[in-house]
């Protein structure tokens, strides 16, 4: 049990990195990016490409790929996302859904359909572990992943709290028009936020490819995990994202104790449970709550 809990917490670190970008985009730009998972896989493939083609260490490749992903996010926001937002709330969903399909098939065309992994490139790190008392072994890679997640969230928090860009991001997310009125260029702030979000997606994708196999169509499943972590943790909250990721990871980890199929299912069940509970508690006082939904009685 303790082992499953620890493994789940470490897995939650990966979900937190994956979800942080999605949460940032939603919190600052009010934009739901359905291609987030596919962008993560794109990041993974770019790192794979650098590692295989040029023989770079995956970590060095990651350092090169993250700015490229950030630039891609900047361009996407400027050229695509901002335009779709002027067309109502449905258009961004349709557009990013389509962008996801383009990314999936583009990666399929460029890199083929084989499932690939960075496992070989990181060498012994993929299987080495630390032995703890009570027969628990913690894989080095999951621990490093969790460490990166905490580092990323702390860094993001520091940027948001103490830098000029961070203040501009928070002001824009609170009231974009008021931010414009004090001289903040909301368009640039939105682009910067999208750049950070897409770079984070790329980081998550590379971490995924280190621990598991990825294929060009793996994005949508990652998007669902990211969504679940964001919703469980509370939308727009940075540390909530980590909590949500950990809850999701622990649920999956306990689920897989029951049977391998329960790995994903347990995560979905907890997600639906949290949604249901939130619905119940927020509506219970006003409308008669779940009982009202079930019985239709006043």
């Amino acid at each position: 049990m303790l082992d499953a809990a620890l493994q789940g917490i470490l897995l939650g670190g990966y979900y937190a990195v994956l979800a942080a970008g999605l949460s940032l985009m939603f919190g600052v730009i009010r934009f739901i990016n359905l291609a987030h998972g596919d962008l993560a896989i794109l990041g993974a493939y770019l790192v794979l490409f650098c590692a295989e083609r040029f023989g770079l260490s995956p970590w060095l490749a990651l350092v090169l790929v993250l700015p490229v992903m950030g630039l891609f996010g900047w361009v996407l926001q400027g050229a695509l996302f901002a335009r779709t937002m002027r067309g109502g709330f449905l258009l961004p969903l349709l557009t990013t859904f389509g962008l996801g399909a383009v990314l999936q098939n583009g990666m399929f065309g460029l890199f083929g359909s084989d499932a690939r992994s960075l496992g070989n490139a990181i060498g012994s790190l993929s299987w080495e572990s630390w032995q703890l008392p009570f027969g628990i072994s913690l894989g080095k890679l999951p621990v490093i992943t969790f460490g990166i997640a905490v580092f990323v969230l702390v860094a993001l928090q520091l940027v948001l709290s103490h830098t000029r860009l961070g203040r501009a991001i928070r002001a824009t997310s609170a009231d974009a028009e008021a931010a414009e009125l004090v001289g903040v260029d909301a368009r640039t702030v939105h682009r910067a936020a999208a750049a950070i979000a897409v770079a984070l997606a790329g980081l998550a994708g590379a971490l995924l490819a280190m621990r598991a196999l990825v294929n060009p169509y793996a994005g949508p499943a990652q998007l669902i995990f990211a969504f679940e972590a964001v919703v469980i943790g509370g939308i727009g909250s940075l540390w909530g994202t980590l909590v949500g990721g950990i809850i999701l990871g622990v649920a999956q980890s306990f689920g897989s104790l029951l049977s391998p199929q329960w790995f994903q299912l347990a995560g979905h069940v907890v997600f639906l449970g949290v949604l249901g509970a939130r619905l119940y508690f927020s509506h219970a006082g006003r409308r008669g709550g779940l009982r009202f939904l079930l019985t239709g009685a006043r």
Partner: peptide
Amino acid sequence: AMVPEGRRLFSEMTVDENLRIACENG
């Protein structure tokens, strides 16, 4: 510079931050 109707402060930011953001961007 406009003081908009309803003030439109950044309510989760401190007074200092509200002032500073205008200083940094104005």
